[in-house]
Design a protein around this nucleic acid. Structure first.
Lengths: 136, 136
DNA sequence: ATATGTGCAAATGCTTTGCAACGCC
DNA sequence: GGCGTTGCAAAGCATTTGCACATAT
């Protein structure tokens, strides 16, 4: 129930080569630039199924746009993202998980899920330049 | 630069009476139900300015929809939100802040900022309810 | 009086979907 | 050959915006 099509292969390939979080549309452009002919709807459909199967991580930007990235760690983890260049560092934080779980339990909440993303300026972009504007 | 209009007053009133995170559209419906005549665009515009001035907290749901709520704590805090009804619990987590800061520092990131929201099912909706089948 | 706020409807922008053609298995 | 996949364009949604009118101050 998951065929190996030229399009899906191209998408996976593009994801593999890309280390930053990118929108479906950006990925689509990338594919076009690489000479691949893939419909935008197909990109969306495949990203969606990949996200569901855990093949890619999804990050919902403040403006509601979804960003995708193939992460090294296939398990649960979080991201430290440079708001200037998109550079991403994955990290685990067991203590955070535990604390959040405890708080939720305190209030009787179940079926938990959470979003935790840290934004900042990476070493490359945090140095000299003061007042770096808030890009998304 | 900020006039006291019937619409804005009604909106603030509705927010005051509402303890859960609600979408702009839900708030608009609420106002209509209360017999107020307020345009949807006006609700959006006012919520936007309120969010900017810190009058309300905004959180972006997984589906990209923005949810608004007037919070008790005007400072930095996080939310434990029921996916089903929007019921919200505010909480502080100094240890989390510290841990995140440490991790970011480890990677040389500066000018930090982060988003942390916990979603789940509140006691009312987590039980043996047959309706509870959707854990995104 | 006049700058702001409002309403409506049209416009945006991202994402999804209907449906016929297409191509792995 | 059959059924998952794809493409395209149309449809959906939440949100924004242009513009004429209304209104707080």
């Amino acid at each position: 129930m998951q065929r190996t099509t030229r399009q899906r292969t191209a998408l996976l390939d593009a994801l593999e080569r890309q280390d930053d979080f990118r929108s479906a549309q950006q990925i689509h452009e990338q594919l076009r630039a690489d000479g691949e002919t893939v419909g935008l709807a197909t990109v969306y459909r495949n990203l969606q199924s990949l996200a569901q199967s855990g093949g890619v991580d999804v990050l919902v930007a403040d403006d509601g746009e979804s960003l995708y990235r193939q992460c090294a760690d296939s398990g649960h983890h979080h991201h430290l993202v440079c708001r200037e260049c998109g550079r991403t560092v994955e990290f685990l934080a067991p203590e955070l998980e535990a604390a959040m779980t405890a708080i939720a339990a305190d209030h009787g909440f179940t079926d938990l899920d959470h979003t935790l993303e840290v934004f900042g300026l990476c070493p490359e972009h945090g140095g000299a330049s003061p007042e770096a504007g808030r890009s998304r």
